[in-house]
Simulated scan of single mutants.
Amino acid sequence: MTQAIVVQTTTGSSADAERLAEIIIQNAKGACVQIAGPVTSIYPWQGAIQKEEEYLVSIKTTRQAFSSLAELIRLHHSYDVPEIIAIPIVDGSSDYMEWLVQSIS
């Protein structure tokens, strides 16, 4: 039904998450950005298991905007290898989905 996706990334602080969210919205690469956290992330990095407090950033956008959004995230992210994943939105209310698509340039 839809070209809409949710793109997720994480940041090391609330301030970084908010700064990234504002950049995404100002550049019209996301219709809505939600920040949740802190969350605890456990992952292998450089030969050791890491346990970090992070903030989850969820961006409602479109598949067509993914590449430029991913590049914008890479450009403004403090991590060497930021999480940038896309999750399809299978369905949604027609009014919201129309607004989402119209909000992306």
Rank of each mutant, 00 (worst) to 15 (best):
M1D: 10
M1R: 13
T2R: 13
T2L: 14
Q3H: 12
Q3C: 14
Q3G: 15
V6E: 15
V6N: 09
V6P: 11
V7K: 10
V7N: 09
Q8L: 15
T9Y: 07
T10C: 08
T11I: 06
G12N: 04
G12Y: 01
S13E: 02
A15H: 06
A17M: 02
E18K: 04
R19V: 02
R19Q: 08
R19S: 03
R19W: 06
L20I: 04
L20T: 00
E22K: 09
E22D: 13
E22I: 06
I23W: 12
I23E: 12
I23Y: 08
I23N: 10
I24T: 05
I24K: 01
Q26D: 08
N27I: 05
N27M: 03
N27L: 11
N27E: 08
N27G: 02
A28D: 06
A28P: 02
K29C: 14
K29E: 05
G30I: 01
G30W: 00
A31Q: 07
C32E: 05
V33F: 00
V33I: 04
V33W: 00
V33A: 01
Q34I: 03
I35E: 00
A36D: 15
G37R: 01
G37M: 07
P38M: 09
V39Y: 09
T40H: 07
S41H: 05
S41A: 04
S41C: 12
Q46C: 12
G47N: 03
G47M: 01
G47W: 00
A48Q: 10
Q50F: 02
Q50I: 06
K51G: 00
E53K: 08
E53D: 08
E54H: 06
E54W: 00
E54Y: 03
E54K: 03
Y55F: 14
Y55G: 00
L56N: 03
L56M: 10
L56D: 04
V57N: 00
V57M: 00
S58N: 05
I59T: 13
K60I: 02
K60F: 04
T62Y: 00
T62I: 02
T62M: 04
T62P: 02
R63D: 12
Q64M: 10
S67A: 13
S68W: 07
A70N: 12
E71M: 11
E71I: 12
E71H: 13
L72S: 01
L72A: 04
R74F: 07
L75K: 15
L75N: 09
H76W: 07
H77V: 01
H77D: 04
S78Y: 05
Y79M: 06
Y79V: 04
D80S: 11
D80Q: 08
V81F: 10
V81I: 15
P82E: 07
P82N: 10
E83Q: 09
E83S: 14
I85E: 09
I85G: 14
I85S: 14
I85D: 13
I87C: 14
I87K: 11
I87D: 13
P88N: 06
P88H: 14
D91G: 11
D91C: 05
G92Y: 11
S94P: 15
S94H: 14
S94L: 15
D95I: 15
D95W: 11
Y96V: 07
Y96N: 09
Y96L: 15
M97W: 03
M97P: 04
M97Y: 13
E98Q: 12
W99G: 04
W99F: 10
L100Y: 07
L100D: 05
V101P: 01
V101C: 04
S103A: 07
I104Y: 03
S105Q: 07
